[in-house]
Amino acid sequence: MFSRSLLNCSGLNVEPSLICAADADFEEIALFQQRCFEGQVGEAERAAVQTFQHYVWKYTLLQPARIAELRRNGQLVAMCAAFPVQLSAGGDPMTGWQICDIATIPPERRKGYFKACLAVLTDTLPSTDVFFGFPNSRSAPQLTAMGWRHVDTLSPFVGIIPNLTAIETVHRVERFGGSHDLLVRNFGQSDRLRIVKSSAYMNARYCSALRPIYSCYVARNGAEDCGWIVLRTLRLFGVRVSVIMDSFAVDAISRKLLIRHAGFWSRQQGCLATVSFNNQWRMLDLLRCGLIEIPSLLMPRPLVLMVSGKRGGSTDHWHSYVGDWDGL
């Protein structure tokens, strides 16, 4: 356990501490998160993620997460977590920490506890690492006040993809392997900062038995992988939709085939429409596939990407998909 000097918040001495995921009480965290967000919009969606299994999965994704806890008399009052991922820009690797699960029990809010917990995380972890996250409307202003920068807001794309048949060159995979890593090495380089989508990352993120809600597909030209797409279903505004969580293609033809297959998959799942959030597609690129960009303010939770850290602050350009956010 890592500790920090005592902070005085509203006249009460409290000591935020930083623990490793291996020392976390996942059942306590699940119950705490449920209490903090009780009665707020999106209850059905939160019920699927505020569980013991979800936090075990997220906090042990590739390497153990770090969790800042603030307790009074042994009871959890506030927390903030961060889990590590590998980032890259122009082939330059770096460690990123995605900030998540920011919460304080209602009677203790507006006392500086969130700031204290976040300080434990950012002060203890290496200063050369990048801290980023997709905060909600309550946390974003606090992060701005602490020097975090707004990088981008992921654009929502919505539509009905007009395809009734499976694409023969698109295949479902249960795990990603060496051919995927070769694809990432050969075509996945970019000057934009992004999560490195290695097979290890993709398998932990989308192929875990702890979270069996995703369907993964690859486009192939003979024995070579030409791209991938990851799909899941979700209820949005009371309607069942399919979500493109992540996608990459080496060319426009492969991208079109993957998206057309997503339309077929969506119909198989009984979905009314397909949606995605990312900052890679352009407004007119996908009109032929039936997807159009809509204002992010029309969505129940705009996905705002914010960043902190010396290396993260030096770039304004990220590649990001909704799957980069831990909430889905």
Rank of each mutant, 00 (worst) to 15 (best):
Q75F: 06
R110Q: 13
Q268W: 03
M245Y: 00
V49G: 07
M146Y: 12
E108N: 12
K115Y: 05
T95F: 02
D316T: 13
P106I: 09
P162T: 08
L118K: 10
R288S: 15
L164Q: 12
E45S: 15
S10M: 08
F37I: 05
A30G: 03
R311F: 02
A48I: 06
F114A: 10
I253Y: 09
F131A: 03
L297E: 14
E15M: 14
I167C: 09
R267F: 07
V49L: 09
I102N: 10
G227P: 03
N163K: 07
K310Q: 14
L272T: 13
S155R: 10
Q53M: 01
R192C: 12
R109H: 08
D101K: 01
Y206Q: 00
S155Y: 00
S179L: 13
S254K: 00
V170Y: 05
R138K: 14
L286T: 09
P141K: 06
P300L: 02
F237H: 14
F157A: 08
T144S: 13
S254N: 04
F237L: 13
P84D: 02
D123H: 12
L12F: 12
A262I: 01
A47W: 00
Y59W: 13
A223G: 09
G309L: 00
L305Q: 01
G42S: 00
S155P: 01
A103Y: 08
L297W: 14
I259F: 04
